[in-house]
Computed example of a mutant assay.
Amino acid sequence: MTIIEAIKEILTNEEIGLTSRNIYEKIIEKNLYSFGAKDPKAIVNGIIRKHCLGIDFPTASPVKHFKVVKQTGHVNYYLLNKNDSQALTINEIKNNEKEFLPEEKMMRAYNEHVGNIKQQLIDEILDSDPAFFEQLVSDLLIKMGYGYDENVSKVVGGTNDGGIDCIIDEDKLGLDKINIQAKRYSKDNMVGRPVLQMFVGAMQNVQKGVFITTSSFTKQAVDYAKTQQQKNLKLIDGEMLAELIVKYEVGVTSIKSFNTYKIDKDYFSES
Rank of each mutant, 00 (worst) to 15 (best):
E9Y: 05
L11S: 10
L11I: 07
T12D: 10
S20C: 08
R21F: 15
R21N: 07
R21C: 10
I23D: 02
K30S: 15
N31H: 12
N31K: 14
Y33N: 01
P40V: 03
I43R: 14
I43Q: 10
V44P: 00
I47G: 01
R49I: 12
K50N: 10
C52I: 01
D56H: 14
F57I: 01
F57G: 02
A60I: 04
P62A: 14
K70Y: 07
Q71Y: 13
T72V: 15
Y78K: 02
L80N: 05
N83P: 01
N91I: 09
E99G: 07
E104D: 11
M106L: 14
R108Q: 09
H113L: 14
V114H: 04
K118E: 05
E124R: 15
I125K: 06
P130M: 13
P130G: 04
A131D: 09
F132G: 04
L136D: 01
L136A: 02
S138W: 00
S138E: 07
D139F: 04
D139H: 11
I142A: 06
K143Y: 00
G145P: 08
D149A: 12
E150R: 08
S153Q: 05
K154M: 02
V155S: 11
V155K: 09
G158L: 01
G158S: 05
G163V: 00
I167A: 13
D169F: 10
E170Q: 10
D171K: 06
D171R: 05
L173Y: 07
G174F: 15
L175N: 11
I178C: 10
I178K: 02
I180C: 12
A182H: 04
R184S: 04
Y185Q: 08
Y185T: 03
S186N: 09
N189W: 04
V191E: 05
R193S: 09
V195Y: 02
M198Q: 13
G201F: 08
M203Y: 03
Q204A: 09
V206H: 07
V210E: 00
T218D: 03
K219D: 10
K219W: 05
K219R: 11
Q220S: 10
K226C: 12
Q228H: 14
Q229Y: 13
Q230S: 15
Q230D: 06
N232C: 14
I236N: 06
D237E: 14
E239L: 02
L241Y: 09
E243G: 03
L244T: 03
K247Q: 06
E249I: 08
V250A: 07
S254Y: 06
I255N: 05
F258V: 11
F258M: 12
N259M: 13
D264K: 02
S269W: 00
S271Y: 02
